[in-house]
């Protein structure tokens, strides 16, 4: 069957099915199971209203349960079993095998560097961009343009930046901007930036910083505009200079938002996969956890170690998960 046709049928069935399910299940509840008439009308209405929320929630809960909750436990189970031995329980063997691999430690080290550099740089640039664009006339356009990389796929960004980092043999015209600038200021040889161990990690991080700065800017700009003007006026009257106003008056007031931006970007960083996969595929000591996991699962077909690596990512996410849930609950009270 033609995929486009299949897609169309799926849309019709999916949407129709959802609407049908919600409509008919409600009809069934109100007309057949607990009709709001007869001797027990009042009791029936109450019962129907007790059940109805679950009718509304059911498809979402089933999907969430199957696609997000169950996999967490299943991955935990898989990480403790050996696929080659018919799924036998092997305890922590996968983990100890993973811990003995230098590639894993390389991935963990790189991930830690990503975790420090990318959220910090994106938030800093975002704050700078927000402050700059908020105080000029063409700030809207500037915001749009800085925000634009957000719409570009990680793979597209990888191609864009590979062109920037491109290196041509010595003596020929350089077509990568970075080498052109480098050779303009120094007499060295053209560098293949992505193959220089350790530093190449930073060249990959730049790509994600470039993408995430726009996000940080949008959120922080809204927070900056929400600062009560009296506080700033008072500071001006007291003779504060623009830098003091920014760092001592504005930044402390939007600290909560900065934390939100920081943690959101941290989550993105922990899952970073496409950029590394497309640009270096973990060669030249640029491995990260998500790509390591993909290597193990789908190249080496080692589900045990792959699942163990996935659990490490989950473990790193957990503090943020707990923090978010804690805050959400506090807000609801």
């Amino acid at each position: 069957m033609n995929p486009a046709l299949q897609g169309l049928i799926t849309i019709v069935l999916g949407v129709g099915g959802c609407v049908g399910y919600f409509y008919f299940s409600n009809q069934f509840l109100d007309k057949v199971l607990y009709p709001a008439k007869g001797p027990n009308a009042g009791r029936n209405i109450n019962r129907a209203n007790m059940i109805r929320p679950w009718l509304f929630l059911a498809p979402a809960l089933i999907a969430l349960g199957f696609y997000l909750v169950y996999p967490v436990f299943e991955t935990l189970r898989l990480s403790l079993t050996d696929r080659d031995a018919g799924g036998a329980f092997v305890g922590a063997e996968n983990y100890s095998q993973m811990l003995s691999e230098p590639k894993f430690w390389e991935a963990l080290r790189n991930n830690m560097m990503w975790l420090i550099v990318v959220p910090a740089a994106s938030t800093a640039f975002g704050l700078l961009a927000a402050q700059l664009t908020d105080s000029i006339k063409w700030g809207g356009v500037a915001k749009s343009l800085i925000f634009m990389p957000m719409a570009i796929s990680f793979v597209g960004a990888a191609v864009i930046w590979k062109l920037v980092y491109d290196a041509r043999p010595e003596g020929t015209e350089q077509i990568g901007v970075l080498n052109a600038i480098y050779l303009f200021f120094s007499d060295g040889d053209p560098q293949t930036w992505l193959t220089i161990p350790f530093w190449n990690n930073f060249f990959l991080m730049i790509v994600l910083i470039w993408i995430q700065t726009g996000f940080a800017m949008v959120i922080l700009s809204a927070a900056l505009r929400g600062i009560p003007e009296e506080t700033i006026e008072a500071a001006i009257v007291d003779g504060a200079n623009p830098f003091q106003i920014f760092f001592k008056i504005k930044v402390p007031q939007i600290m909560a938002t900065i934390v939100v931006v920081w943690t959101t970007i941290t989550i993105v960083v922990l899952k970073v996969f496409d950029i590394v996969f497309a640009m270096t595929n973990g060669q030249w000591e640029t491995q990260v956890l998500a790509n390591y996991m993909y290597d193990k699962m789908f190249r080496a077909n080692d589900w045990g170690v792959g699942s163990a690596a996935a659990m490490v990512i989950m473990l790193l996410v957990t503090p943020i998960l707990v923090w978010n849930v804690y805050n959400a609950r506090k807000e609801m009270r």
């Binding site: 969430l64 199957f66 696609y67 997000l68 909750v69 169950y70 996999p71 967490v72 299943e74 991955t75 898989l78 989550i267 922990l270 899952k271 996969f273 998500a290 996991m293 699962m297 589900w303 792959g306 699942s307 996935a310 659990m311 990512i313 989950m314 996410v317 943020i320 998960l321 978010n324 849930v325 959400a328």
Partner: peptide, 16 residues
Amino acid sequence: VVGLLVVPLQLALIPL
């Protein structure tokens, strides 16, 4: 739901 927002989808690949 707030908690599930941040669960990495990497965990879901093999089981699904």
